Simulated assay, not measured.
Amino acid sequence: MKSILRNILAVLIGIVVGGFVNITIITYSGSIIPPPEGTDMTTTEGLIAAADLLQPIHYLMPFLAHALGAFVGALIAGLIAATHKMTFALSIGLVFLIGGIMMVLSVPSPTWFIVVDLVLAYIPMAYFAGKMTTNKA
């Protein structure tokens, strides 16, 4: 019973911490790479209105937020999980992938970004984190 509780906590804490990493990067991304002049990137409506003004550099921080959020969440889940560490790490990647799919359905993005984000940011980062928790040094 102890391992079941620990595995459930691994998933919950992984999602919360990974989500915190994601939202923190998104929150501060505008101060690192300023958005186009006169745009409001804090709302879905503002993102939709600014879509045509965004340059490829503006997609760097969202990609990093998604990739690092999935990575950190999966790493935390893998470190906490009592058993099946890779499975729990990948489950975090899957949760974040579902969130990414929901995001690309609600906010317009160039096709190249959608492909790069969905293919490289979630499952590969969760797999890498899972490998880090299962490899014995």
Score class of each variant (00 low, 15 high):
S31T: 15
I57P: 02
L64R: 00
P35T: 10
A81S: 14
M61T: 10
I25R: 05
L5V: 09
H58W: 03
A77K: 11
I57K: 15
G38H: 09
I8E: 03
G38N: 09
T83Q: 13
I15A: 14
M41E: 11
T42F: 03
A70Y: 00
L64M: 03
F71E: 07
R6C: 04
L54M: 15
H66L: 06
I33W: 01
L64V: 02
L54N: 08
L68N: 02
V11E: 06
T27W: 14
T44V: 15
Y28M: 13
A51E: 12
T83R: 13
F20E: 07
L68W: 05
A65V: 04
I23T: 12
T24A: 14
V21A: 04
M86S: 01
F71C: 11
G69A: 03
E45I: 08
V72M: 05
Q55E: 12
P56T: 02
L79S: 07
A81R: 08
A74D: 05
E45F: 05
V16S: 02
A70D: 00
P56K: 01
T44G: 11
A49N: 13
I32M: 12
V17Q: 02
G73Y: 07
F63K: 05
E37G: 00
K2W: 08
T39N: 08
G18P: 08
Y59C: 08
I57M: 13
V16L: 14
S31W: 14
G69L: 01
G14I: 06
A70L: 00
T44A: 14
A81G: 08
K2Q: 15
H84Q: 08
M61Y: 04
L9R: 04
L12D: 06
H84A: 06
A67Q: 07
A50V: 12
A10G: 02
N22S: 11
M61R: 09
I15P: 04
M86T: 02
L54W: 03
L53T: 07
P62C: 03
R6E: 07
M41Y: 00
I13W: 13
P36F: 10
V17A: 02
Y59M: 13
V16N: 02
S29T: 12
N7D: 15
L5A: 13
L60K: 08
I26K: 12
G78N: 10
K2R: 14
I4F: 14
L9V: 11
A67V: 10
G19C: 09
N22V: 02
I23E: 12
